[in-house]
Each structure stands twice: as structure tokens, then as C-alpha cells.
């Protein structure tokens, strides 16, 4: 759609985004306008560029071309309004910090350069931990937490920031059932408060239950739109095409979904 204007209301609008590593593109011509206050699932096979999309939006990796706007502004002007939950495996959990320390990191941007963390910051971090359901683990060293608890710590670190839009990279990966429920509830709560989230997701069987909107991604946007319209067997086949195993999984997930 050449010449399309970016809506200032859209929490995230991406125009013509291309990302390349060593000159071979990993994301082609992504063009998206996400609706306000909704939960958006980003779905696609491994290596489809899902994490890359989030990172490119947050200026963490250079863009070959294209523009990204959050609420009509470039990211660096609206950092505070955007929360980020990286993949859990992206950090070394043997690091000498407690769960509370990690959550206060979500406030560092607000605290600013050179200034120390104060008591009221730690209070807010405790509240965020409570919201993630692990208030009693605040002083635990992060290595002693289970995978699900670590994911909750990351979630609390993002929540403490009270952002208007959250970008989450595979928060549902390898977590226990209880954590999955907490995550789903928190996402619903965000939506009820008129805030939104863009979530990289891998479990096709839960997509319909969680997301209002989906982006089907495989190096380019295959389809994007309301879940009922876009999350169809045909579109999934187009997204996962060429990878028969994954295609079979996708079909299986859909069959299970329709059976219930």
C-alpha cells in the first residue's frame, strides 16, 4: 500500500521494514498497523524472524530499511510506554542477583543514569512480583528459581514499568501449567485496562484462546488480522509451507481445536 499514512493511534505501526544479517535478508517488507488495546500473537516456524521483528522494532538490531512508530512516534521518544520481555534463555541465570534485583531493573530507565535504586522503587518491584504470583521469592537468587518462576520474574520486570504496550518474546516457552494460567490472566488484564501486547508464540493450540489478532510470519508477513479471519488451516499451510513436519503439527493442533 504505497503512501499509506501511519495512524497516530496505532500502538505499533511498521512500514516497509527489512532486516538483513550480512546482506541476506531475514525479514522482508513488513507492513503492519496493529489495533489499539489488543493482544496480538506473532506466529511462524523457527527461523521465521519473529524475535528479529521485535528486536528491530526496539532498535536493538539495525534495520536495512523501513520505519517503525509506536503511538505515532519513534521508539526512543516513547521508551517508557513500551515494555519488553526478552526470551528467558537469552540471559545467564547463574548471575549474582535476586529476583527483586531483576525486577527493579525494569525501573532503571525511569530512575535514570547514575542515580541509586531507592526504597520506593523496591516497593514497586515487590508489588510487581506479587502480581506475577511470586512475592515470597523476592530474595531468592535467580538460579534457585524454576523455569516458570524465572519467566514470572521477567514478566514482573516488564509489568513494574506500567507500559502501554508490551513486546514479549516466547513468554509461554517451557513454563508449567500454573505459570501459563498466570500469564494468560495477566494478558487479559492488560487488555481490560486498554493496554496491549505483541507476543511471539509457538503453541498453535492456544492461539485462539489468547489472541484477538495474529500476525503469521515467515520472513515476510503471510497474513495479519483478526484471529477468526486469519488463523485458518489454509493460511497456516502457507506460513509453515515447505516444512512438512511443522505443517502436520499445525494441522493436528487445528483438528484438536475443532474437536473440542
Amino acid at each position: 500500500m504505497p503512501g499509506r499514512e501511519h495512524s497516530a493511534r496505532a500502538p505499533l505501526s511498521i512500514h516497509d521494514l527489512t532486516v538483513a544479517y550480512e546482506r541476506s535478508p531475514v525479514l522482508w517488507d513488513v507492513d503492519l498497523d496493529l489495533p489499539a488495546g489488543s493482544l496480538v500473537g506473532v506466529i511462524g516456524p523457527n527461523g521465521a524472524g519473529k524475535s528479529t521483528l521485535l528486536k528491530a522494532c526496539l532498535d536493538l538490531i539495525p534495520r536495512a530499511s523501513g520505519e517503525v512508530r509506536f503511538f505515532g512516534r519513534p521508539y526512543r521518544e516513547v521508551r517508557r510506554r513500551i515494555g519488553y520481555v526478552p526470551q528467558r534463555e537469552s540471559v545467564d541465570w547463574d548471575f549474582p542477583v535476586s529476583a527483586l534485583d531483576v525486577v527493579t531493573m525494569g525501573l532503571y530507565g525511569e530512575i535514570g543514569w547514575f542515580r541509586p535504586v531507592r526504597r520506593h522503587h523496591r516497593e514497586r518491584a515487590r508489588e510487581a512480583l506479587a502480581k506475577a504470583g511470586i512475592a515470597e521469592l523476592a530474595d531468592r537468587q535467580i538460579q534457585q528459581l524454576s523455569g516458570g518462576q524465572q519467566q514470572r520474574v521477567f514478566l514482573a520486570r516488564a509489568l513494574v514499568q506500567r507500559a502501554d504496550l508490551y513486546l514479549m518474546d516466547e513468554p509461554f516457552a517451557a513454563v508449567d501449567a500454573a505459570t501459563q494460567r498466570t500469564l494468560t490472566d495477566l494478558l487479559q488484564e492488560l487488555r481490560e485496562e486498554g493496554r496491549g501486547a505483541v507476543v511471539v508464540h509457538h503453541d498453535l493450540s492456544t492461539v485462539r484462546a489468547i489472541f484477538d489478532w495474529v500476525v503469521l510470519l515467515n520472513l515476510r508477513v503471510v497474513r495479519a488480522g483478526p484471529t477468526e479471519e486469519v488463523f485458518t488451516e489454509e493460511n497456516l499451510a502457507a506460513t509453515y509451507g515447505g516444512n512438512l513436519n511443522l505443517l502436520a503439527q499445525a494441522g493436528e493442533a487445528l483438528r484438536q481445536r475443532e474437536g473440542t
Partner: peptide
């Protein structure tokens, strides 16, 4: 000492730190 919290963030999670403006 002045940059203690910034360096901690850099060492633990540089992507998150960059996203927060460090």
C-alpha cells in the same frame, strides 16, 4: 560506583538494557 546499576544491567541482560535506553 556511579555506574554500578548500569554495568550490572549490561552484564546481566544487555538487550533489555538497550531497550530501556542504556
Amino acid at each position: 560506583l556511579a555506574l554500578r546499576k548500569e554495568f550490572t544491567l549490561l552484564c546481566f541482560d544487555e538487550a533489555f538494557g538497550s531497550a530501556r535506553g542504556f
